[in-house]
Amino acid sequence: MPSPPARRDTARRSPTAAPRSFLWSRRIFLTLLSGFVLLPVYVMVSSSLKPLQDVSGAFRWMPSELTLRPYADIWKTVPLAKYFVNSLVVAGAATVCSVVVAVFAAYAVSRYRFRGKRLFTVSVLSTQMFPGILFLLPLFLMFVHIGNATGVALFGSRGGLILTYLTFSLPFSVWMLIGYLDSVPRELDEAALVDGCGPLRALFLVVVPAAAPGIVAVAVYAFMTAWGEVLFASVMTNDTTRTLAVGLQGYSTQNDVYWNQVMAASLVVSVPVVAGFLLLQRYLVTGLTAGAVK
């Protein structure tokens, strides 16, 4: 990977050269830390390429032979494709809804003065501290009741899970976006308003494009939140709507675990989010800088 452009992020610290003790501490610390981070990644990748006998006995650092069999088998041992589609639908829909709702809310907070603004931001953010376990059961009962009363099936359906997940990422998304929209000059949308745009047109034609990196960061965050959630998925899904979070866990707690297949499956479900995250991490850092860390 090319080293970053020297001008932008060079030496924010000392214009003087760093002493040897610093350089050596850095080398040792970063090497150890990289080892710690990489160890499970190595186990995941190498085990997913091993034949079954390599993973059902003492651990082996190197596979006795490389095989892609586990990657073919995972789709047959468990209905992984079904879980995958469920997760994709749920996380995708939750992300889109969450981002749209968060953009509206953040735009209101960033651009208008109104009564209850502070109350809104404080209360939305304080939902972050509620233990999920506190509203798991009431929410479950509520969904069942709504289902009985209106026939709208929320419990056990993807809809219910989408609704739940979208509110999980919402507080942090709103918070990050407020900061991001604040950094978009007001003159931009005021100019659009003067030119005869309505506020919504100004939002979509001027503010949203200018805040695109922040919005992308929020979308990545929302998707990751929904893709990785376990607790609510374990209670609110049934056999047809089961997501990867629950399906994979069941896979790894069977009596006879095919660890090579489990590792292959873990890798397959990680690739979309990790790739997306690493591609867009720059935006996430910028988004955090603008929003969270002021």
Partner: peptide, 16 residues
């Protein structure tokens, strides 16, 4: 590299 554990879905990392 350091951001990989954060990006991995919790269950995939914990199962490993």
């Amino acid at each position: 590299l350091f951001l990989v554990p954060y990006a991995l879905p919790v269950y995939a990392a914990v199962i490993t």
